[in-house]
């Protein structure tokens, strides 16, 4: 957490008595549900050991929409997005309560296979993390892992298609056998996106995908997100409010583990309802 975020949180604590954050049953401002949602979450609580990280969050991910989540460091937005494909399973002390459904199926039920879930809900991480393998293998790995291709030429087609859709094909088509780690940061991140879309997920989760990239690479990713939203539902956690404003149709503001406000991005960035949202996006103390 950076200094300002700490001060920000402290200033919140100072006025905690008149604060909705003190209310355990705080109700999110704005419409949390959408019709025909790709993913629905209801009353999600997340605990790390004794510490509660997420309080009673309900939020739907609409079909073919880009949903951005913003909020100060430690507000739980990353924790929340990681609940959506059960990446938090790897943390022993993490306990998740509530109802999270993908196409109506409870993803935390015993019938849900986590490997299958992650094939349906792909993820792109903060730091570009290509495997230390060739560009081709990076994209092909998930495909062959799940047995999505019958032969080499089919695999080749899938890899090419994924790289094309990630906007990387023209840059790497002549060096598919070179290591993915040799690409520039922005290319690496697009490679990671290609790796995720190669297995044709329904939803792509992005956890601060541009925080390690320069503005031009960021712009390319944002353009890509825009294109991808034609086919996929995208959830993006970002520290950059401008990015949220640029890429998303809906924006959710998290604060200290609570979902303060959800709304159309246009509204959130011109006339937010909650004073915490306003304080955060205009760069003031709460």
């Amino acid at each position: 957490m950076n200094q300002t975020a700490i001060e920000f949180s402290k200033s919140i604590e100072r006025n905690i008595s008149d604060d909705p954050l003190n209310d355990p049953n705080y109700k999110t401002v704005g419409e949390v549900t959408v019709p025909n949602a790709a993913m629905t979450t209801k009353n999600v609580d997340v605990h790390y050991g004794d510490k509660q990280a997420i309080f009673n969050v309900s939020l739907d991910v609409g079909r073919n929409e880009v949903l951005s989540m913003i909020g100060p460091s430690g507000c739980g937005k990353s924790t929340f997005i990681r609940c959506l494909n059960r990446m938090n399973d790897t943390i022993d002390s993490c306990r998740i309560e509530g109802d999270i459904r993908l196409d109506g199926e409870d993803i935390y039920s015993r019938n849900m296979d986590v490997v299958l879930l992650r094939a349906r809900v792909g993820m792109v991480f903060q730091k570009p993390n290509p495997f230390p393998k060739s560009i081709y293998d990076n994209v092909a790995y998930g495909v062959s892992l799940h047995g999505l291709s019958n032969n080499k030429s089919e695999l080749d087609d899938i890899v090419e298609d994924a790289l094309k859709r990630a906007g990387l094909w023209d840059e790497v088509s002549d060096r598919l056998n070179q290591p993915g780690t040799g690409l520039s940061g922005g290319q690496q991140q697009r490679l990671c996106i290609a790796r995720a879309i190669a297995i044709s997920p329904e939803i792509i989760l992005m956890d601060e995908p541009c925080s390690a990239l320069d503005p031009i690479a960021t712009a390319k990713i944002e353009e890509l997100i825009d294109e991808l939203s034609q086919r996929y539902s995208i959830c993006i956690v970002t520290h950059s409010m401008q990015q949220a404003a640029r890429v998303s149709q809906r924006t959710a503001y998290f604060h200290l583990g609570k979902l303060i406000e959800v709304g159309a991005t246009d509204i959130i960035f011109t006339n937010p309802s909650h004073r915490l949202t306003e304080g955060y996006i205009t760069g003031r103390f709460g």
Partner: peptide
């Protein structure tokens, strides 16, 4: 919204 921006120069 009585409090100012974190960036005081903006204020």
């Amino acid at each position: 919204m009585n409090e100012g921006h974190i960036v005081t120069r903006f204020d």
